[in-house]
Simulated scan of single mutants.
Amino acid sequence: MKKKRISITDIAQALQVTPSTVSRALNGGGKVSEKKRQEIISLAKKLGYRPNPIAKSLLENRTNTIGLILPEFTHHFYSRVLAGIESVTSQAGYQLLICTSNENQNQEIKSTLTLLDARVDGILATISKMNDKFEHIQEVMDSGTPLVLVDRFSEEIETPYVISDDFKGAFSAVDYLCQIGCKNILHIKGPDNLSTTFNRFMGYKEALRKHEIEVKEELVLESSDPKLVEKIRFCLGDLHADGAFTYSDYLAFEIYKLAAELKITIPEELSVIGYADEPISTYINPTLSTVNQQPFEMGAMSANYLLNKINDSASPLEASRVDTKLILRESCRKMDG
Rank of each mutant, 00 (worst) to 15 (best):
Y283T: 07
S313V: 01
F234S: 12
Y247N: 15
F245C: 10
A241V: 02
S315P: 11
R329Q: 02
D242L: 06
S302F: 00
D242Y: 11
K325S: 01
N285A: 12
P295N: 07
L326F: 09
M301C: 05
S315I: 05
S315W: 03
K325H: 14
E268V: 00
T246S: 11
V322K: 05
E254I: 00
I327F: 04
K257S: 15
F245E: 05
N311S: 06
L288W: 03
H240A: 08
A276I: 01
V272N: 11
T282V: 14
N292A: 15
R321C: 11
L262P: 02
P286W: 10
T246E: 08
L262N: 11
N308K: 05
F234E: 08
L262Y: 10
A319H: 14
P295K: 12
L288I: 10
S315C: 13
S271F: 06
D277M: 08
L251M: 13
N308H: 12
L270M: 10
L288G: 05
P316E: 12
L270Q: 11
E254L: 12
S315T: 12
N308V: 04
D323G: 10
T246L: 15
E318G: 00
F296D: 07
I327N: 03
S313E: 10
N308F: 03
A314Y: 03
A314R: 10
L326C: 10
N311H: 03
Q293G: 04
P295H: 06
L262S: 06
M301A: 03
L251A: 06
S281I: 04
I264W: 07
E261M: 11
T287A: 14
A300L: 04
V272Q: 09
A314N: 14
E318D: 05
E269C: 08
I255Y: 09
D277P: 13
K257I: 13
S281K: 09
T265Y: 06
L251P: 01
A244H: 06
L270N: 08
E261K: 13
E318M: 15
V322D: 05
L326I: 08
N292C: 11
G237T: 03
P316G: 04
Y283L: 15
K263H: 12
A319Q: 15
D238Y: 02
E254S: 15
F296K: 13
K257T: 15
D238K: 13
L251K: 12
Q293R: 07
S281L: 00
F234L: 09
T324I: 00
F245S: 03
V272S: 05
L239D: 03
I284C: 09
K263S: 15
A314Q: 13
A252R: 02
V291S: 07
S289K: 02
P295Q: 03
L239W: 00
T290A: 03
Y247Q: 09
Y275E: 08
I264F: 11
R329N: 01
S281M: 05
E268S: 10
L306W: 05
D238W: 04
N304F: 00
N304D: 12
A260L: 04
A300S: 14
Y247D: 09
N304H: 14
P295L: 13
P286T: 11
L328Q: 12
K309C: 09
I273W: 03
D238G: 00
L288M: 01
E278W: 04
D323Q: 14
Y247K: 03
D277E: 13
D312C: 07
G237Y: 08
T290M: 09
I255Q: 06
N285S: 13
Y275N: 15
T324K: 05
Q293I: 10
T246V: 13
